Computed example of a mutant assay.
Amino acid sequence: MSDNTSTPHGSGASATTGLRPMPKVNKITVNDVIDAFAAGLADFRRAPVYGLAIGAFFALGGLFVVLSAAALNMSYLSYPAAAGFVLIGPFAAVGLYEVSRRLQNGEELSWSRIFGTMWAQKGRELSWMAFVVLFIQIMWMYQVRLLLALFLGFRSFASFDEFLTQVISTPEGLMFLAVGHVVGAILSLILFSLTVVSFPLLMEEDRDFITAMITSVRAVFTSPVPMIGWAFVVTAVLIVSMAPAFLGLVVSLPILGHTTWHLYKKCVEIPEETL
């Protein structure tokens, strides 16, 4: 397929338009995931200000979503809304990928350069990936409302406590929880497969978002055990991080974001351009 071959970071792409080979996907092991995590933690320690600032902004976004649900007398949607909010984590971590890229290449770190790179993506393919994430988040909220209607009827709840009591003390509520978490897990796995390497790939290379998603899915299918294992780790860390009013995300998001960048570098190789 043809696309613009100019690259944001001088990746060596040809200045002419022509067929471009698909990125090469490497098979990785659990040890590679551990190494990526160690590298991500090292990046966080080397540039904590950037990670903490981005993590704090993300945490504030989660609080805003939950408080908005309460303000609209829809506090019973606080939990699913919070769970749906963390689905945008890959997009929120874009700035972290740029920090890791600069650290890896020995380039200067500054807010102006990081924001400049992020702003440059507004007219690029990464914007379409943001739309994909948003679409899945909307699907998440719609399936929650559908399951609520199916299992608990068309009703609202005066408070989150009333909703929680109904959910955990009735057969219908427990079924809602079980089915909801299964559907949520499926949507999360789909989103993970589509985005785990596509966002960092688009940050580094001027590729179309379809190629990026295909590469991401190939990475998961090539190394299913370590990649899905990493997905479970990410899910568990995010759940724990949300518990104390989203405060845990201030630290966990940057570490997960930096780790994802290094995991991408282990999974994907960009071949020489074919004219």
Score class of each variant (00 low, 15 high):
P224R: 14
A130V: 12
S110F: 08
F91I: 14
V233S: 03
I270A: 01
L189E: 05
P8W: 03
A149S: 14
G84K: 06
G12C: 10
I138K: 11
D206F: 01
V182C: 04
T211I: 06
F151P: 00
V33H: 04
V240S: 03
I190N: 05
T259F: 07
Q104I: 04
G173F: 09
P80V: 02
L103K: 09
L174W: 10
S68D: 09
F199R: 06
V220D: 11
T274L: 15
E125M: 10
D35K: 14
L52E: 01
S6M: 06
W119D: 02
F91D: 01
G116Y: 15
R20A: 05
V179Q: 01
F160Y: 11
M139N: 10
L194R: 01
H262F: 05
V183D: 01
G229W: 08
I28V: 14
M242L: 14
M139A: 15
A42I: 02
F221L: 15
W128C: 00
A38S: 12
R101Q: 07
E172M: 11
G116C: 13
V182M: 12
A185I: 11
E205Y: 05
V240M: 12
V179K: 01
W128F: 11
A70I: 01
I255C: 05
V167T: 06
E172L: 08
I186R: 05
E98G: 01
I28Q: 04
V25K: 04
T16P: 01
V144S: 04
M1R: 14
S100G: 07
P23L: 07
I168V: 11
T165S: 14
V217A: 13
M129C: 05
G12F: 10
P200V: 08
K24H: 10
R46C: 03
A243R: 12
T7S: 15
F157Q: 07
Y50I: 03
